[in-house]
Nucleic acid binder design. Structure first.
Length: 406
DNA sequence: TCTGGGGTCCTAGGACCC
DNA sequence: TCTGGGGTCCTAGGACCC
C-alpha cells in the first residue's frame, strides 16, 4: 500500500510576509496584487476569523475587517521559499511532486522505514520548516493523493493527520462531497439534485447512474466517494500546453488604440516567455471581459508556429477585428497554445526570419537585465506598466515561474 | 465601493474528408 | 423518395485547481 504525504503551507503568502515583517505577526493581514481592482490572494488566520475570503475585493474585506492590513505580494519571496522547501522534501524521498507554490506530494512508500515511519517524517518536516522559515504547514498522510490532500485539509492549520486505508470509510461517511479535491460547486450541485450530498452516498451510488449523468468521469466520482484515487505523482513536470497572460485594466477602455496597445504588451509578455523557454505556438487566443463580467475567448489557428511578439499581436488583432464589441473592455488576455519546442535545428520550420529573431533576442536580453518593458515599442510607452502579477499557480522554476518585474 | 491571474482537461457541435 | 459512417481538426465554453 502506497504512503503519500501532502505538505500544505498554512496561509503561505501571508505567513511569508508576516515572517519578513515582524510588525505584521499576529495581525489580520491579506496579500493582494497591486491596483484598486485586485482581490485577496491569501489572508492570515487572524483575518479569516472576520470572514475575509480568497477572491474577495479589498473593499469588501475592509468592510468585514476594518483593521486589516493589505500587503502587495512579492512573488520573488514566495518562489524563493518554495525552492528552499523542495530541498527539505527530497531528503526524504526522490519522488516529490511540487503541485503548486505552497503544496507538495511526497511518495515515501519505499523510504519511510529509513526515517522512523511516515508520521515521523511529517513531524520532522514541520519542525524543519518552522525553524528555517518561521511558517506553519499541515501534513496529510494517506494511501493516495486524494486522501492525503483531504487529510491535510481536515487537519489545518498547523496539523498532521494520517488517514489509513481502514479509516477512510468512516472519514468519508458524512463528509460533504465538495470537500473532495476535484469536486467543485457545479458537480456538487448536480450531485445534490440526485440526492447525493456526502462522500458516503457518492461511494454507494450505482456506477451506471453516475456514468449516465456525468459520462466518463462518473466512475471516477464513485471511486472518489470511496476514497480511491489512481492518479500517480507527477514527479517530472511535462511541457506546457499553453502560455498566456491576461490583465484587468485599471479602467475600462473602449478606444481601439488603447486596446491594441494592451494587446501588444500582452503579446510581448507571452512571446517573451515562450522564447525564453523555447516554445512556439500554432494557435493564438484572445480573451475579452466586459464590465458586466461577460467573458469570452476566440482563437485562431496559424499557418505555422510562432513565438514572435508581432505575429502573436497581429493575430490577436485579427481576432479582435472579427468581434463587434458590445461594451467597454475590462480585461484582455492573449495566449498561445498547440505548442512545440522551438529548438534551433527546427528553426526552418518556423515562418519567421532570422533577423527578426536576433533583434528580439537583443530586446529580451536588455529586459532580462534591467526589468520588463525597459525596451518596448513606441505605441506602448504611453501606457501604464502592468500590475505585479500574483498567483499561487507559480512554480519555483521553469516556464510557470511567471516573474514580472515592476 | 464592486469581483485576479496562471493553468489543465473535457465536451459538444460543425466542417471536411474518404 | 428520404438522407452511411468513421475519423480528424477546429472552435467555444464549462469545470476545476491553486
Amino acid at each position: 500500500m502506497p504512503i503519500i504525504l501532502c505538505i500544505d503551507m498554512d496561509a503561505f503568502f501571508a505567513s511569508v510576509e508576516q515572517q519578513a515583517n515582524p510588525k505584521l505577526r499576529g495581525k489580520a493581514i491579506a496579500v493582494i496584487g497591486s491596483g484598486h481592482r485586485t482581490v485577496i490572494t491569501t489572508r492570515s488566520y487572524e483575518a479569516r476569523k472576520f470572514g475575509v475570503k480568497t477572491g474577495m475585493n479589498i473593499y469588501e474585506a475592509k468592510k468585514l475587517c476594518p483593521h486589516i492590513i493589505f500587503v502587495v505580494g512579492d512573488n520573488e519571496k514566495y518562489t524563493h521559499t518554495c525552492a528552499e522547501l523542495q530541498k527539505i522534501y527530497i531528503r526524504f524521498t526522490p519522488d516529490v511532486e511540487i503541485y503548486s507554490i505552497d503544496e507538495a506530494f511526497l511518495d515515501v512508500t519505499t523510504t519511510h522505514h529509513l526515517f522512523d515511519g511516515p508520521e515521523s517524517i511529517g513531524y520532522v518536516i514541520k519542525k524543519e520548516i518552522k525553524k528555517k522559515f518561521g511558517i506553519n504547514c499541515t501534513v496529510g498522510i494517506a494511501p493516495n493523493i486524494l486522501m492525503a490532500k483531504l487529510a491535510s485539509d481536515l487537519a489545518k492549520p498547523d496539523g498532521l493527520r494520517w488517514i489509513k486505508e481502514e479509516d477512510a470509510q468512516s472519514v468519508l461517511h458524512s463528509l460533504p462531497v465538495k470537500e473532495l479535491w476535484g469536486i467543485g460547486s457545479a458537480i456538487e450541485r448536480r450531485l445534490g439534485d440526485m440526492g447525493i450530498k456526502t462522500c458516503g452516498e457518492l461511494g454507494n451510488a450505482p456506477a451506471s447512474l453516475l456514468r449516465n449523468k456525468f459520462g466518463i468521469i462518473g466512475e471516477t466520482l464513485k471511486l472518489m466517494g470511496l476514497g480511491i484515487c489512481r492518479r500517480p505523482l507527477i514527479v517530472r513536470e511535462g511541457d506546457p500546453k499553453s502560455i498566456g497572460h491576461s490583465m484587468t485594466l485599471p479602467r475600462d477602455i473602449s478606444s481601439r488604440k488603447h486596446i491594441e496597445a494592451q494587446l501588444l504588451k500582452l503579446s510581448e509578455m507571452v512571446g517573451r516567455r515562450a522564447r525564453k523557454y523555447g516554445f512556439a505556438g500554432k494557435k493564438v487566443s484572445l480573451t475579452i471581459r466586459y464590465p458586466d463580467f461577460e467573458t469570452f475567448t476566440k482563437q485562431a489557428t496559424l499557418p505555422g508556429y510562432t513565438n514572435i511578439t508581432h505575429e502573436i499581436y497581429r493575430h490577436a488583432v485579427c481576432i479582435l477585428d472579427a468581434v463587434r464589441l458590445k461594451d467597454k473592455v475590462r480585461l484582455l488576455g492573449v495566449s498561445i497554445s498547440s505548442l512545440m519546442r522551438d529548438s534551433n535545428d527546427q528553426a526552418t520550420l518556423f515562418d519567421y526570419k532570422r533577423k527578426e529573431k536576433s533583434i528580439l533576442g537583443a530586446v529580451d536580453a536588455v529586459n532580462d537585465r534591467y526589468g520588463d518593458f525597459t525596451v518596448m515599442w513606441a505605441s506602448c510607452l504611453e501606457q501604464l506598466k502592468p500590475p505585479s502579477v500574483i498567483s499561487p499557480a507559480w512554480r519555483p522554476s521553469g516556464i510557470r515561474n511567471v516573474k514580472i518585474k515592476k
